[in-house]
Design a protein around this nucleic acid. Structure first.
Lengths: 201, 201
DNA sequence: GTCTATAAGGCGATAGAC
DNA sequence: GTCTATCGCCTTATAGAC
């Protein structure tokens, strides 16, 4: 696979390894994620993984790109809705009021994975890209709303960054605390903020 | 030290170990944080650490309480200011526009440490407590502002949760991305939100 | 492309001397 | 309370057969 993550293709054997990595991550968490466990999820030997990837870091960076690719395809659901509807729908995707177990586990795994970005510059670069894209998407929805006269003439960058920070905080706290009522409270507060600051009526 | 973290006292040898743990964490990051490295920061043998703590997890949980204690003493700076001034000052403490290297490193280390809460229930419980206290503090400032007629009659829980989620998101993203302009944008957006939603005039 | 076997090293934790 | 020495385990990674 190439360095450019946007138009990458995944061979079937790569995809099998990525899915095994995914399962291992969900099952045991990042701290326990080793080449051995991935191999065992894959029902193959450890050595075979080193045929496809130079090192563990190499494999994990590929996995990160794999996850990014899947996220991309989820974000860009083209739609003919009004900006406010599209925004609402996107926020519902980012901050669903209820998460099923699978989705909850996936997000928890992402939080663990992301913590590697603190010390690993390559990871940090990847997550910077991911975040840039999400904020950009939010910004474009807001700009469209302003153009079409549905939203006030706000600073779309600031509003987008605010929404995104709120989303990040909720996802982060959801994964690392038992404060179960917090997400719903934040969702309501966010809606109230957008109604007051963004909506014209 | 006792299980109750609020009135705990730290012996000098415990404190030396906690400080060594702190240095090791800042130096190499959580992934590399081992008993060996803590011992080497302490200039003592690994075995001596096992005289003071039963296991690595035991040591790290103590460290977490140690950090919590220090946070506590930073939060409760009693002051005679107006609610809006106190709120502004507290937000400035949570979300400073500029972080020096030391503070930046400390927060990054906290993000790494916190990611352990995803899989470790004991860690999660500790971070739940920490967050509860911060949100509670925000809530009390807001309630005071409402009582004294400075703030609108908002749902203080929601506003407090919103501020806290925003703070969490910024801290998390600061530590895991290179999106350097985002924090300032969010700070401005947050101020604007509070001016519109909270302030009476 | 996958296997078995193994190297080399770090880890958490313990035994026992002082 | 601190030390040296050591155990057993798991890790990343490689060599070489098939």
């Amino acid at each position: 696979m190439t360095a450019d993550s946007s138009d990458s293709e995944w061979s079937t054997s790569e995809e099998r390894i990525m899915e095994a990595t995914h399962r291992a991550l969900l099952r045991d968490g990042y701290a326990q994620l080793s080449i051995s466990r991935i191999a065992s999820e894959l029902d193959q030997s450890k050595a075979s993984l080193y045929y496809h990837y130079d090192s563990k870091e190499d494999l994990l960076l590929s996995f990160l790109e794999y996850v990014t690719d899947r996220l991309e395809s989820n974000i860009y659901t083209s739609n003919d809705e009004s900006p406010s509807q599209e925004l609402e729908q996107f926020i519902e995707m980012l901050l669903p009021l209820q998460l099923d177990d699978t989705e909850s586990q996936l997000r928890a795994a992402m939080v663990e994975l992301r913590s590697q970005a603190v010390m690993d510059e390559k990871f940090r670069k990847q997550f910077t890209e991911i975040d840039d894209r999400i904020v950009d998407h939010l910004e474009r929805i807001i700009d469209r709303g302003i153009d079409e006269g549905e939203f006030r003439n706000v600073d779309s960058t600031r509003v987008a960054e605010h929404i995104f920070a709120t989303f990040s905080g909720v996802m982060y706290n959801r994964a690392t605390t038992n404060r179960e009522n917090a997400p719903a409270a934040v969702r309501v507060a966010l809606s109230s903020y957008l109604n007051k600051d963004l909506m014209k009526r």
